[in-house]
Amino acid sequence: MHAHSSIETKETQNIILPSTPHMQIKDLNVYIEGTHILKNINLDIPNNSITSIIGPSGCGKTTLLKTLNRLMDDSKEVKVTGSVLVNGEDIYAKDAEVTHIRKKMGLLSQRPFPLPMSIFDNIAYGPKIHGERNKKVLEQIVETQLRNVGLWEEVKDRLDSSATGLSIGQQQRLCLARGLAVQPEIILGDESTSALDPISTQTIENLLIDLKKDYTIVLVTHILRQARRVSDYILFVYNGKAVEFGKTEDVLINPKNPITQQYVKGFIS
């Protein structure tokens, strides 16, 4: 593992991070159908903390997130260069096994997407495809994960009914529990609260803050107040470049880069 953890891009200065990085992004470039979307990203993501990626829409923050668990390179004509290390292992190495990498990272999408099956099967789906057949164990996993997200009391009597019958806030918590059930190390959130009401948003935010003791969390958000509420670190992305990275207070209150200053003050959106 690397003891010194720093990021170096043209505009940013070095920051010494207190903990060892869980993920390291090195010289990452992404091209979609010939367009240069992400430009030379270098970043260390510290473990057991929440890192928020902020920036105006279209800046590439969602692309960056999806690059982290290799969802970009099989959906379109996409070219990725550079590397993303998870625990020092390059997930873009030629012999890397994609399903194994993705299992390590849970994705919480923009809107909740329950799988077209029952509440129980939604949680049990992940463990099942990874080979868990024992019904007792599956039941145990389902209960534990639903308790983890505070959903157990609400749904324990209707585990066999369709997941689409839940409210949208409940669905998003279910999706979180589903992701946790495959025992990931990292949680990736792609504007995960943008479809939710304020109360559900708060529930999810609190859950994420709780979860960071066991997981490394990376969130994409365009709401600065949310980034301030939940995150320990913030990365500001602009026009495909990592402009500034640092502790939440530093980036939001004392941004070094003039573009970050303008964004934080609301001049660019």
Binding site: L71, S75, G126, R178
Partner: peptide, 21 residues
């Protein structure tokens, strides 16, 4: 929705398992 594909794959499902979903 693309995200349904993405979340299924994020659980570590193979392409074939995703196709079944």
């Amino acid at each position: 929705p693309v995200d349904l594909k993405n979340v299924t794959k994020s659980l570590g499902a193979t392409t074939w398992e995703t196709a079944k979903v």
